[in-house]
Design a protein around this nucleic acid. Sequence first.
DNA 1: ATAAACTTTCAAAAAGTTTTGAAAGTTTAA
DNA 2: TTAAACTTTCAAAACTTTTTGAAAGTTTAT
Lengths: 168, 168
Amino acid sequence: MQLPEAKQKFIETWGKLGSEWGINRTMAQVHALLLVTPDALTTEQVMEELSISRGNANMTLRDLIGWGLVEKQLRPGERKEYFYADKDIWNIARQVAKERRKRELEPVLKTLEELIQVKGDKNDPEFKTFHKSMTDINKMSKNADRMLDTMLQADESWFWGSIFKMFK
Amino acid sequence: MQLPEAKQKFIETWGKLGSEWGINRTMAQVHALLLVTPDALTTEQVMEELSISRGNANMTLRDLIGWGLVEKQLRPGERKEYFYADKDIWNIARQVAKERRKRELEPVLKTLEELIQVKGDKNDPEFKTFHKSMTDINKMSKNADRMLDTMLQADESWFWGSIFKMFK
DNA sequence: ATAAACTTTCAAAAAGTTTTGAAAGTTTAA
DNA sequence: TTAAACTTTCAAAACTTTTTGAAAGTTTAT
């Protein structure tokens, strides 16, 4: 397999993976393209490489910036904006975990707290089952939340730091 | 808030969460319904409670069985099939992690192995960036894979067992 | 102030996904 | 074997999400 074909395949794979995990396919593809490109690209180049429209490229790049995965670069003497992706995969994973925690885990935790407060007849199996499920899910989500929090600070954490080293 | 309303809200929340994570909304909703229902339900009851069609209910229940989240129960002397969801949230999480690992992580690892083999000019920045990204992503995915594997066996593992207890 | 270079917006269209429901299939009891 | 009870299938319809592209907006240089 040659480089251009391999790039194509990676972009396709990354896009598919993204969409399976609730990330827009094009966004994952643009990210993949930037990941295998040594230097920053313009909107124009992204449009060209992936055959997507200007509007789509622009929106997707803005989203990627919102996720903290891509940065805008300005070059002295040029009007065009260049887009560059951080290539450190550990930073990428942290960034994604951080965003999803904020965007998805937090709202669910809020709803669960509310649902746990619902009062009912302690002898009603319906109520008992409901209440137990809510309590259990809440507990586990809170744990996941705390765990993520700890892991996201792994740089500074002796404990997780040493655990991750085990997997290097 | 009263129980029926609370159930409704939970079903809605769980469905939304599911779709944000690449799981079909209805599937997540049916699962949520079964999670807050003490006993097994028939296809008919699921259709009724969620106002969905027979075909949809049937397919969704089959999918849930495929994910290992729901079991079919047969009652002596009855023709109908009953569906019951395991309510142990830790089992649920493990099951989902296990399935997604198999369905998504494994194929990506396979593709990455292939892309890492691609040969090229070691002085070409294009090639260098591509190769480094592939190697890094592969490393991290393999780690995630091994970590999941370890965690999925936590029951039998002294090490992770004791780590999880910290978060109880 | 003007025009060129570039970015952003958004309504409409296309693409993709999910749902429906009627028909076909299967199993069981008598 | 037949009919009733139940389950499964799948093409078409409904719905959701994504993409397009032309128009509007912004910035910069002269």
